[in-house]
Design a binder for these strands. Sequence first.
DNA 1: TGGTCTAGCCTGTATATACAACTGACGGGA
DNA 2: TCCCGTCAGTTGTATATACAGGCTAGACCA
Lengths: 252, 252
Amino acid sequence: MTAAAIPRYRQVKELIIRQISSGKLKPHDRVPSENELVDTTGVSRMTANRALRELTNEGYVERVVGVGTFVADFKAASHVLEVRNIADEILQRGNVHSAVVLTMLQQAADQSAADALQTDIGAALFHVRLVHAEDRIPLQLEERFVLPAFAPDFLRQDFTVVTPSAYLSAKSPLQEAEHVVRAMMPDEEIAAALNMPPGEPALVVSRRTWAHGRPVSFARLFHPGSRFQLSGHYAPPGTEDMQSASQRSQEQ
Amino acid sequence: MTAAAIPRYRQVKELIIRQISSGKLKPHDRVPSENELVDTTGVSRMTANRALRELTNEGYVERVVGVGTFVADFKAASHVLEVRNIADEILQRGNVHSAVVLTMLQQAADQSAADALQTDIGAALFHVRLVHAEDRIPLQLEERFVLPAFAPDFLRQDFTVVTPSAYLSAKSPLQEAEHVVRAMMPDEEIAAALNMPPGEPALVVSRRTWAHGRPVSFARLFHPGSRFQLSGHYAPPGTEDMQSASQRSQEQ
DNA sequence: TGGTCTAGCCTGTATATACAACTGACGGGA
DNA sequence: TCCCGTCAGTTGTATATACAGGCTAGACCA
């Protein structure tokens, strides 16, 4: 078996995907049971099981013990945007990433930072503010607060070399994260740092990351509305490739 | 076996996740091979294989035929935002969705619509414009173009009852989709329709959906920056989860 | 010394078998 | 008529076995 051939569990998956894509099977329709697939396709039950189990993980079908397998509602299929590290993104476009540190100090938490990090107002926090640029054009102002207990050496890093996000994610591997995206008018200081003309809105990504079950870092990422966008591409696993990526819009 | 107990493949997965989370295993470190897991945990090789295979799909580890299994770089783990149907979103918040149709006609494609739908300038397109409201407060202006060939009956629908997005996704189950998010200033007409004060920016989601390998619909969704945000939460499936992880209510 | 070849490990897949638990329908008994 | 038990069908899990094919280190030979 195997060889250059397509694995049989994959053939079974694609058989069913075709029936769904073509409309022969519609949402809530019953999908052939494992034993029916054994009879019709000649694979073993374990192979049929693997095909249906993977289709479940991929959102195509839903399974109910004792009842059967059914085509899932397509609206559940995720339409997704990816929030990526700005430096990676710039490098992947083949451009030069550079960063300028504006602020780097320890300060007392204000209301919003205390809320975001679930700590007390006035608690000591590390605070950095830096501007990331693509080919010398400012693209993101990053304002970040970090719990000192999580990263005691945070203020001794050179963030023009390693971004705060890269430094923090290296400290603790598996993190929980929350993102919120908004459109808002930047204040004058931010607009100036990003070289934004008056009246231009900003796309703001707020990101909180968790470690050991509690939030340890909170960042607000401001981008010029005219020069930055988030984008994502979703393709069902029949059509090849397509990565999602954020891109700088072409003009300006 | 089995019984009320946690399945063994899951126990093996969590064993490895713990070693990664605790830092005992770091990115690029070698993970025990299937046969080593057979020896140390007493499960069969197929069970060990399932555990490692699922960890691969979940992004924890990477496997190389003939070499071994290794802890993955965490930065690859996607931080994701979901773009959801506005009506579903409002209903899930327990509020009332309503829609008002502003425009509903067939017209010739202009430059941008022709580009987006990969058709010719001047080609006939269906065009609708409607405002979605949450508890009577306008929250989204939807401007949508559709290829007539894909949905000939499109203009005969009552979009105050079924949203265009729901109608189209029912027409063709498995779609490819592309999203782009921007911040921009709305023109006066849009600002008025959404009841936005002067100077307030809009969060704009552009969405193209494909069927049969070509784009069939293009929508621009304008939201008041002060009243709308996109958010997403990512939690790795190891963290005391199972409640939060199995509750993919976000995705449904 | 240098090149080649093989043994042993690794993952990937496929099958047959087995048992557990759940569901729904059918039929028999009170 | 209504309740309940049985039974067939379904998914979920677990194991033992088997073979294919990639990779690497070390043995072996020239």
